[in-house]
Computed example of a mutant assay.
Amino acid sequence: MRVLVTGAAGFIGSRLSERLLERGDEVLGYDNLNAYYDPRLKAARLDRLLPHAGFTFVRAALEDRPALDAAFAQFAPQRVVNLAAQAGVRYSLENPHAYIDSNIVGFMNVLEACRHRGVEHLVYASSSSVYGANRKLPFDVADSVDHPVSMYAATKKANELMAHTYSHLFALPTTGLRFFTVYGPWGRPDMALFLFTRRILSGEPLDVFNHGHHTRDFTYIDDIVEGVIRTLDRIPGPDPDFDPLAPNPASSTAPYRVYNIGSHRPIQLLRYIEVLEDCLGRKAELRMLPLQPGDVPDTYADVQALQRDTGYTPSTPVEVGVRRFVEWYRGFYGS
Rank of each mutant, 00 (worst) to 15 (best):
E22L: 14
R115Q: 09
V296T: 11
P66Y: 06
Y329F: 15
A158R: 02
D143K: 11
T181S: 14
F11H: 14
A35C: 06
Y131L: 10
P247F: 09
V145I: 15
T175E: 02
I200L: 00
A43E: 15
L46K: 00
L50D: 03
T56F: 00
T231N: 09
E327T: 12
F179T: 09
I200M: 03
V58D: 11
E160M: 14
S335N: 13
Y272Q: 10
Q78N: 12
D143Q: 15
H97D: 14
N103P: 01
Q292G: 10
L169M: 12
A71K: 06
L291H: 04
R45E: 03
V89M: 13
M108L: 11
V258I: 15
V208T: 05
L270P: 01
C114K: 01
F196M: 09
F72P: 06
L201H: 02
P255I: 05
L193E: 05
A250Q: 00
L269K: 04
A76P: 09
P39A: 05
E94A: 14
G281Q: 06
V110I: 15
D278P: 08
G331A: 11
R23C: 05
Y124H: 14
T299C: 11
D47F: 02
P189Y: 08
G13K: 01
V145N: 07
V145Q: 10
Q86Y: 08
A85P: 07
V130K: 04
M191Y: 02
E285I: 09
R45L: 12
V123C: 11
E277P: 04
S17W: 08
F209N: 03
P77A: 07
G281T: 03
L161T: 05
V322W: 05
G227Q: 07
N260W: 12
R135D: 14
Q74S: 15
T174G: 06
V27T: 09
V110P: 00
A43K: 15
L122Y: 07
R257V: 12
F196T: 07
V5F: 08
V182L: 05
H211Y: 10
I229T: 01
F107L: 11
D25R: 01
L49R: 03
P77N: 08
E63F: 01
